[in-house]
């Protein structure tokens, strides 16, 4: 384990009741690092994110965040420590306006109203589409806009690690490109670490410096992104080449 890792997961076992999904998962993310988590459907990628976010309680192993244990901390307190999850399927508060959704992201922040509204303006700058629809109900947005709103809500938590689960799912390639560009921009200005779970492996590897491959509940590889892109096995399995 790297001593100054932002997030270090060690030998993590996670189960839903009797059904074990993750076995002895090791994973590390350094400060400001962008990491992709790849793997086929049902491998346990979402489960891993949910365990880190505090929605699931691991059966064994450790999650260390910034030098302190994180396992067993409930989701509502995990986010206060600087980890945000943008969940699969957006999970916006459909009956609330865009502005309210974004404001909810800052629910746990204690750094003052001014900082929060500055961040809100920053998110609106990042996603001008949202600024135009700030008083609309989030449920009425298009798929791409909803994803922007979900990312914006994640950013509003002022994360040091932003975890994104399947952000391209159901979106047009144009929308995906736009969101990826904005994420890259956000990363440049804020420098937060990111953990990206993606079906769109090419997109993930463009953003990420490193990547892990998770297959049937175990990490089978972890390497530099460009080396994985060039790996014939990865190419065949995940890039369809």
């Amino acid at each position: 384990m790297t001593p100054d890792a932002l997030l270090a997961i060690e030998r993590l076992d996670v189960a839903y009741g009797e059904i074990q999904v993750l076995w002895e998962v090791d994973l590390e993310i350094a400060r400001g690092e962008v990491v992709a988590l790849l793997g086929p459907n049902g491998a346990g990628k979402t489960t891993l994110l949910r365990a880190v976010a505090g929605l699931l309680r691991p059966r064994a192993g450790r999650i260390v965040w910034d030098g302190a244990p994180l396992d067993g901390v409930p989701a509502s307190r995990v986010v206060a420590r600087g980890l945000a999850l943008v969940p699969e399927g957006r999970r916006l508060f459909a009956g609330m306006t865009v502005a309210e959704n974004l404001t909810m992201g800052a629910y746990r922040r204690t750094d003052g109203r001014a900082a929060v509204s500055a961040d809100l303006e920053w998110v609106f700058e990042l996603f001008p589409e949202l600024a135009a629809r700030r008083r609309q109900q989030a449920g009425a947005l298009s798929g791409g806009e909803q994803q922007m709103c979900a990312i914006g809500r994640g950013l509003m938590t002022k994360p040091r690690l932003l975890m994104l689960d399947e952000l391209s799912l159901g979106l047009s390639p144009v929308a995906v490109d736009r969101i990826v560009a904005m994420l890259a921009a956000a990363h440049r200005t804020r420098g937060m670490a990111m953990l990206i779970v993606e079906q769109d492996v090419r997109m993930a590897l463009e953003l990420a410096r490193r990547a892990y491959i998770l297959e049937t509940g175990r990490i089978t590889r972890g390497d530099e992104a460009r080396r994985l892109i060039d790996d014939p096995r990865v190419k065949k399995a995940y890039l369809g080449l």
Partner: peptide, 16 residues
């Protein structure tokens, strides 16, 4: 309201 709309999503933004 957030908890009413989506319990998990509310927890993910820090709602106890």
């Amino acid at each position: 309201r957030a908890a009413a709309l989506d319990k998990e999503a509310a927890e993910l933004v820090g709602v106890d």
